[in-house]
């Protein structure tokens, strides 16, 4: 298993990973305690106080309907994180399944799966997602699913590569010679030893899923009003950027912190696992 003491010790020393972890943990806390942290309900409209700059009452100002920007950013965290996790969950599941089959059995199946991966990679994924969403209609669930089923290819390739190499190890060969079933070999012998790169890919995948969700919402086909989403907030901010900078700056920073946090964590984990970087 990769989650041994050595790994924990090394990742503890990796400053980048720790900084990323802190950001991610912070976001989790925010999303978990959104109702306690947000000073106002996110959909509380106050038409007598629209586009108010940051003050004590509204720490990050208010938007075009007088809603508190801070509260909306806090509630948007939950939306972003759930999109990230569910989408990556789907893509990892798909990727691991197809990659494992392909790498373990090889032959014609392997060829077929890998050509399918090539085909999928040919589409620019953002435009593929746009087209699919335009067809099935925007909703937070559709977005999660569509992001999930358009981003599994990287994981599939990784898993296949791991399987190809681990399959030839002595302990796997021993299991095969003892007549262990394929399922047992895949799930008990190979998969646990291929977890490390999957974890890294998943962490980085969350970052890109959050970005795609923001992008879709920015274009108006993501999360629908009145649910707050950072991308939605940015769209509103863009139209009023000259008179209300706080509408664009703060949601933008929220996206930045999230994406950076996951990327740093992912890269940190990768570095700590890489034997070549061992000192």
């Amino acid at each position: 298993m990769f989650l041994n003491e050595d790994f924990v010790r090394r990742i503890g020393k990796n400053k980048m990973a720790m900084a990323g972890l802190c950001m991610v943990a912070f976001l989790f806390c925010v999303a978990l305690f959104e109702n306690e942290l947000a000073p106002y309900p996110p959909d509380r409209i106050d038409t007598s106080n629209i586009l108010a700059p940051p003050t004590y009452q509204h720490l990050l100002g208010t938007d075009v309907l007088g809603r508190d920007v801070l509260s909306r950013i806090i509630h948007g965290a939950g939306v972003s994180l759930s999109v990230g996790f569910v989408a990556v969950g789907i893509s990892t599941l798909l990727g691991v399944m197809l990659g494992a089959l392909s790498g373990y059995y090889g032959g014609a199946l392997d060829k077929a799966v890998m050509r399918f991966v090539d085909v999928m990679l040919c589409f620019p994924s953002f435009f593929l997602i746009l087209a699919v969403i335009a067809f099935i209609g925007p909703s937070i669930w559709n977005i999660m699913i569509v992001i999930g089923i358009t981003s599994w290819m990287g994981v599939a390739r990784l898993v296949r590569a791991e399987f190809l190499s681990i399959r030839e190890r002595d302990y796997v060969q021993a299991a095969i010679s003892q007549g262990a079933s394929d399922a047992r070999i895949i799930f008990l012998h190979i998969l646990p030893n291929a977890m490390a790169p999957i974890l890294v890919a998943a962490t980085l995948g969350i970052a890109s899923a959050v970005l795609i969700e923001s992008g879709l919402s920015f274009l108006g086909i993501g999360v629908q009003p009145p649910d707050p989403s950072w991308g939605n907030m940015l769209t509103e901010g863009k139209d009023n950027i000259e008179i209300a900078w706080w509408l664009s700056l703060f949601p933008g920073m929220a996206i930045l912190i999230t994406v950076m946090g996951y990327n740093m964590l992912g890269e940190g984990i990768r570095d700590s696992l890489d034997p070549r970087l061992r000192r």
Binding site: D43, I45, L65, Q224, P225, P226
Partner: peptide, 28 residues
């Protein structure tokens, strides 16, 4: 899509109707 005045009016209607016990969804 593309008419913020309509979208924002819908959001206010959603709030007002919630007060009398009607649940409104908005689709742009």
């Amino acid at each position: 899509h593309g008419n913020d005045i309509r979208k924002n009016a819908a959001i206010i209607i959603q709030r007002d109707l919630k007060k009398v016990g009607i649940k409104v969804h908005i689709r742009v």
